[in-house]
């Protein structure tokens, strides 16, 4: 398993974000993506999640020697991003159950309870997502991203609004990715979080 970023570049209209990013993330590794605001960290993660077609170059995920593409790649990707929202008209447990079903899992009560407990939302599963605090929302998003144990975990500034125990949850999630020989990308500018990675990509505005 590896994620290969080759000569990656993206631009919005005339504004070039980054060019010529070259990186290979090996299995069981955590890669930190840093760079100033507006340099394109989020865009890089979006491309890695296969949600955005890069302007030039490629970001390919290899299971064996063949690249994983299409629906299969989507099924093995977990993604947390500030732009992503869950359904505010549903409770936390209902949100989890919906995304679990889309991943082909059968979410029974025990499953949901353990998933919520893992991100420290025990006993809050029946509250509406709209009534969650921003930190709790972030925790639920992390729980959703971990559904089905994705081999590629992409965390875009996951530490926003999280307290100390929230940071521990993140570290635990990264450790789990390492254990199952997956790959994690973590976009952050927090010095503490930068220490969690094995490698580093610096995205600089061109």
């Amino acid at each position: 398993m590896k994620l290969h970023l080759h000569n990656l570049g993206h631009r919005y209209g005339a504004r070039v974000l980054f060019r010529g990013i070259e990186h290979t993330a090996a299995e069981g590794s955590v890669t930190i993506v840093t760079g100033p605001n507006g340099a394109g960290k989020s865009t890089l993660l979006r491309i890695a999640a296969d949600l955005l077609l890069p302007w030039e170059g490629s970001a390919l995920l290899y299971q064996t020697s063949e690249a994983v593409t299409g629906a299969q790649r989507k099924m093995t990707t977990g993604y947390v991003s500030p732009e992503m929202a869950l359904y505010s008209e549903f409770t936390g447990a209902e949100n989890l159950a919906f995304y679990a079903r889309l991943r082909g899992l059968q979410p029974d009560n025990a499953f949901l309870r353990s998933a919520l407990e893992k991100v420290g939302l025990k006993g809050r599963g029946r509250d509406r997502y709209a009534d969650y605090s921003s930190g709790m929302k972030q925790r639920l998003k992390i729980a959703v991203a971990q559904l089905g144990e994705p081999m590629l975990l992409l965390l875009d500034e996951p530490g926003t609004n999280l307290d100390r125990s929230g940071a521990e949850i993140l570290q635990e999630a990264l450790q789990e990715v390492r254990n199952r020989k997956g790959i994690a990308l973590l976009a952050t500018n927090e010095p503490d979080e930068e220490l969690w990675g094995d490698e580093k990509i610096c995205v600089n505005a061109v």
Binding site: K74, T77, Y79, E83, M84, A85, Y87, L102, R103, V144
Partner: peptide
């Protein structure tokens, strides 16, 4: 509401 981003990832 921004939920389309997750749908794009989780569904074809």
């Amino acid at each position: 509401s921004g939920t389309s981003l997750a749908l794009r990832l989780y569904m074809s």
